Amino acid sequence: MEADLVVQTIKKSARELFRHYGYNKTSVNQLAKHANIAKATFYKHFASKELILHAVLMDYIRENVQDILDKNVREKDLSTFLANTILRVSRVTYTVCNEFVGWEFIRESANAQEYLKTLSEDLEFLLLSTFIQNETIAQTVSEERLTFLIKCSKNIVFSFAFTAVTDADVRKNFISFQKEMLPYLVEATLL
């Protein structure tokens, strides 16, 4: 039980420090000090700073995905539900990367890009398994087609996140994605 409390304390400290200083500017020493634990205790639970980042981001994304799904349950039809869910999850993913890591660091660091690939794959798995657990979706859409929708959407969103220079560019890209691309991806998924 105590180990769970330590892990939760480390995660809470990491969330706060990553949001305040960014991932790159937060050290393991700062994380341990903020969590009021020894550095060795940190490493007992997380082998690296990257692993705590991953745990924090996935917890945050999981909570938000569930919240998004709970709110979207009342959508009029399956295509609207899928489009709105993909769009909202994409926004959450972009926001969490921006808040906790920082896109400048991600664009410039090979390690961050490799990490982002892992995060992207875990997000894909999370979304796919969540969609498959929905009885209506599971009966209507094949896993292969859901994978197509998630992979395409994810790749589009990450590509404009890497190429956008300003927040205004990101907003324009999300609007373009929502109006010009996502409806066709959903339509192709439901064929």
Rank of each mutant, 00 (worst) to 15 (best):
A3D: 13
I10V: 11
K12Q: 12
K12C: 05
S13N: 02
A14C: 05
R19Y: 10
G22M: 05
G22W: 09
N24I: 02
K25F: 11
H34L: 01
A35M: 05
I37C: 04
A38E: 13
A38S: 14
K44H: 15
F46L: 06
A47L: 02
K49S: 10
E50K: 14
V56N: 11
M58F: 04
Q66W: 09
D67N: 14
N72I: 11
N72V: 12
E75K: 12
A83D: 07
N84Y: 04
I86Y: 05
L87S: 06
S90I: 09
T93R: 12
T93K: 12
Y94D: 08
T95D: 13
T95Q: 14
T95R: 13
V96K: 09
E99A: 08
V101Q: 07
G102T: 03
R107L: 02
N111Y: 06
L119T: 00
E121D: 10
D122Q: 08
L123I: 13
E124W: 00
S129Q: 11
T130Y: 02
N134W: 01
A138K: 15
Q139S: 10
L146V: 06
S153M: 05
F160Y: 15
V165M: 11
V165G: 07
T166A: 05
A168Q: 15
I175Y: 05
F177N: 07
Q178Y: 09
E180T: 11
E180S: 10
M181V: 13
E187C: 03
